[in-house]
Design a protein around this nucleic acid. Sequence first.
DNA 1: ATTAGGG
DNA 2: CCCTAAT
Length: 709
Amino acid sequence: MVVKKRQYYGFNGFHMPPVPRAPRSARGRGLNKMKVEDSQICAFELLASLAGKLLQESESSASSNASEANDQPIIGGGGGVKFEQDDDRPLKAECLDHGSCGESALFTQFSSPNSDQKCLLNEFPHAESNLFLERSSMITNSNSSKNGGADLKSVICKSKSACENIPGKVEGSSDSRMSCDGYVDNGLSRQKRCDRLDTRGLIVDPCSSNDPMEMCMKFPALINSVNNVELPSCRDPVPSASIPRHRNGTKLGIRDDDENFTRCNKPLTKSKAFRPPQRIGDRRIRKLLTSKYWKVAPKLKDCEFSKPAFLEGGVKSHYLKRKLCYSRERYQLNTFYKRRKFTDHSVVVTSDGGFSSESVCNSPDKNMTGDKNGASIMFHDAANGVSSSVIGHQASFHSKDSQVKFSIKSFRVPELLIEVPESATVGSLKRTVVEAVSAILGGGLRVGVLLHGKKVRDDNRTLLQTGIASNENLDTLGFSLEPTPVQVSPPLCTEDPPALLPCDTSQLISRSPATPIVDSGVSDALPDPPPLTNLDTNIESNRESVSFHADIVTDNTLSDSRALVAVPPVNAEELAMVPLNQKSKRSELVQRRTRRPFSVSEVEALVHAVEELGTGRWRDVKLCSFEDADHRTYVDLKDKWKTLVHTAQIAPQQRRGEPVPQELLDRVLAAHAYWSQHQAKQHSKNQTATLKITDAHAVRNGVEDIQSI
DNA sequence: ATTAGGG
DNA sequence: CCCTAAT
């Protein structure tokens, strides 16, 4: 894989250390890299120093200078960047190169969504594009206007207030620095937030219903888009801020967004030193990318990195820090596919636009408390206002039939396995991911119902029968998105045949090797995945297949599902546990060799060789009897022997696969016994060995077998 | 590179 | 079959 670790470092990197260099060197990177970075760093430092000067000046000049400062902030905290600020492109380029600041990265994104991004966007076409536009516009404004400071600020404030619900803090300061901070802090998250904010203001709040019960489907990646777009799904409730806490830093291995990553990358690199966890992710990604694992997130303190002096401004650093943390985590959340497990604590958007960290959705209690028997399955559809209608509806039913309330925070999403050649570009990687996702989505989705972690397969049973009728059990209820078994074979490509397999580690789908997706080496083509469209269709069509109460499965649900956000009700514990598995779960990256059962003749040859050579000399066995069988390694032979021995020791009824003649099995046992005794070390002659084996064999099996020898 | 074992 | 540790 080409993807370097650093790319995925995630958000940690947020801060820009005054002395960027240190961390890196400490890290001990490859030589090449080091060199490059150093040079970059130098440049960066220069810029930084300049920035610092500028900052000072501006400060000294005091209020009047606000305009001056304005520009800087926008650019991203990086004072250094400032110079070039006028020109978007250049600037951006610079920042990135330096890799010093996430902020800059941010900038970049705004300024130029590239094709790659588009790819991702494709998945959520509407939304993303909109977002971009918005962002762009925002930035543009700020930059262009001399007064920009004010504008920018306002924007920021707005976003903050909206998101954070902490209006007061931001508002007050009009300092250019503040604005900077805002930018910096938020970094990526910020963008999104802004989007949301804007959206919020503009659009009717999907979650408008104050009702906490609403189902919140979260689709991290999509969230933004959702907001902007008309999509029904609930908006992500800003989880970024609140959720994180609970989860405390869980991190996804793969994250959806390039955007985020892009920005984060550099910074992360630095932070890497303190955050081992991320690294793991990288590694994993590096190989392939599976978003499967959650990592333990960095502790809160990680978030508290020191800020660059120039950034520290009137704004409360604490606040900022927090924000950063959130942002970072948020990203994590966003990972869009991968199985996610959430805690009960999910954040819900409150009617006022504020977020609450408390879990509203999840806990049925809260919402449902009111009426235990009441029916309320709510799917929250902001756009359509479905939720409300549904609710009302149910209420009416209420008396008739006991109703079960469901609050679906998210869906569990199947794992994706992606492989791309190292030579692939990041862009192609992105596209590959898109394709992979598209393939799955395009193939159709089904919703699975999990109770106590187990899949409920019987669609015909009633909820009551299934045991999900009682409110108590709702916690253990989960929904998963599953690709339809019949998958459309995805497009393949060049270089390596990477395979994409939707894999469900446990409860979801079984691996479908059938769906290999390869990166289309085609570079720039903008990936335009029609899939989205299909999705709807598919979902729609599949709807019926989903069986549990039809009521529950609504369009909203489905459509939301496309967002791929899943939040099954799970315990916090689970969350913690799931994550670190990376290791245990060998990344499916390397695809397993195809299974090739040993034929009887092969077994024969193996047995013969072992009889002569004994166990413990697998290489010789290989040379002796499987010289030509490239696919049989000595390890394979050894393993086969192992299984043969086992097979020979169990009852015939328990054996599976192509039956091995008892005769051979007997020889296996005999040889095994013999060589066990001899410690397999003696180089006894073949003949001798054979003889002995024969004896042993005879002994074991009785006279009748002798003839076989 | 092999071996030995556990998964 | 895979993965690792130990040779």
